[in-house]
Design a protein around this nucleic acid. Sequence first.
DNA 1: CTGAAAGCGCTTACAG
DNA 2: CTGAAAGCGCTTACAG
Lengths: 336, 336
Amino acid sequence: MASDATGGRPRRITALDVARRAGVSRSAVSRAFSRTAYIDPGKRALILKVAEEMGYRPNALAAGLMRTRSNLVAVVAGEIGNFHDAALVAQLVPALIAAGKWPIVIDGSVDAEDLGTPDIFSYPLDAMIVRGGSVDETLVAACAKLNIPLVFSGCIVEADFVDSVCCLNAGGMGMAADLLVQRGRRRFGYIGGPSSWASERERFAGARARLRAAGLEFVACLSADYTFEGGSRAARDLLSAQQLDAVICANDAMALGALTVARQEMGLAVPVDLSITGFDDIGQASWPCFNLTTLRNPVDTMVARIVDLLLTRLADPTLPGRVAYIEPDLIARDTH
Amino acid sequence: MASDATGGRPRRITALDVARRAGVSRSAVSRAFSRTAYIDPGKRALILKVAEEMGYRPNALAAGLMRTRSNLVAVVAGEIGNFHDAALVAQLVPALIAAGKWPIVIDGSVDAEDLGTPDIFSYPLDAMIVRGGSVDETLVAACAKLNIPLVFSGCIVEADFVDSVCCLNAGGMGMAADLLVQRGRRRFGYIGGPSSWASERERFAGARARLRAAGLEFVACLSADYTFEGGSRAARDLLSAQQLDAVICANDAMALGALTVARQEMGLAVPVDLSITGFDDIGQASWPCFNLTTLRNPVDTMVARIVDLLLTRLADPTLPGRVAYIEPDLIARDTH
DNA sequence: CTGAAAGCGCTTACAG
DNA sequence: CTGAAAGCGCTTACAG
């Protein structure tokens, strides 16, 4: 490795280093690493061999300066502690890499406004993928200004350069409500998330609409934070204040908390005395100790749609904003 | 935004665009965005205003060509589906960003060898952080050749440019074994992970050593895959073949699976008939339906150590390889 | 098929 | 305090 005048970290091997050692021009080295460029096969082999020996790789940062693509994609994982969001990111990462894009993962706490702090928009991103139940207008504005395509997952954004993939929340929750009504439940409680989230409002509206269609209203509604603990607290409050025979929860984590409180603290038999449903079908929902009745919000389909929207938009940036709807499936297990 | 000759995506605004509009040189624009450079305050304000209007940000890729740092750090998240590893990545991401580094997250499946596929080493990474129970020699060799500092979490790597942070696995499992021996257990089973993992071998050895100190040996050992389902299967096999009064599991996910099988399928009362312990103290371990006795492998401490090792090494790349050991805490809940 | 040259967008001595 | 110039490491027309 080449030495460094400052005496610190040795500098990275460059194409010129390889060119000198192999007795060719830097252009030849560049061509040896290019799929499309013309170069004598024997010469290419020699260059690749010397490069391998010296530990040379073309510097993607320098190459990116010439190309129109950086292959860098920012992934904003709003609630990375949330089981379902974590599963999404876990599957999205390999899918992006397989598509030749490197995911720079960011948690929701990063402030897009503050120019003084590290700024992800310093990088010429190919695109940004955002997971979240609500739209961060600052992000959308920044992407618009910088002309960075945006893919939203979790809610629908209306803008020219933005694509969205979104679960049919209302329809899904409607199925849960229908199932419970049909089973004979009449006194419904609801545990939701922050009503600032579009996805939350859709889920609530979907459940309420189907209850109303059956001539029913929620007896009580509480909003929590999409966590097991939040669902536990909400269920404790709800079930001690009201006589209920069904609790519809806006996601699985809260439903599992509610289920645990109902059984262990309230001494209720689920599903004999009480029905509980969730949303997402996270891994834990199918654990035999829970066997939660829920709606599958399929991560694999979601990831496939996101990557598809991303690649087609990169291929044609002039495309109008598109929305991919994802159909949730009712998974009727043992808690309804 | 400037138009593009090719008619495709408009190109990004450059310092020259801003310079022209503001009537200054490109150097001045560059200085306006630099903390250290001298520039007239009024001129800086003007430039920043024009830049803001035009949506300009210095391109980190071009800037990185001149600097010694790219601020890009690769995070290899071996088992991103694993609850404990997922929690680690979830906390590591904001910690790195707060330290001014952007995490490019990679799943373990990415092949470091294959030059044809997308190659993370094309980017001049400041460092690489690897989470895993075993060492990928290919990665270590690649980092050595490219002089990229490496921080390992989950096992110890002996090399000049590599720092490791590692839980005291043997000591932790020893505490679990001691607790159960002291409680009067005599017929021990063990559910471990792949024995190719150093962490797995340490955990097993730690438990066995303390059993032997009490004159005991494991009655039966099985190795699974660190998942709830794997732990369930192993427990089914173990408990139907052997009469056991304690099962030590190498992680929490497997312990929760084993606990569920013991109670629901085998009709065993835990902790009356059988003790079960885990390792990690993942969030689910404290759910009231489990209340698992386990060893806390503290994610926050681990993340703090990783970032600390990273920053000190970047400050002085000549440092010898260091190891930060993390003390696990016995969390005695209700399953022992 | 090849090398010399221009240029990608930035930063940083260098003169002034 | 400022601008013109050199240079970071690469790619890509341009002549040959």
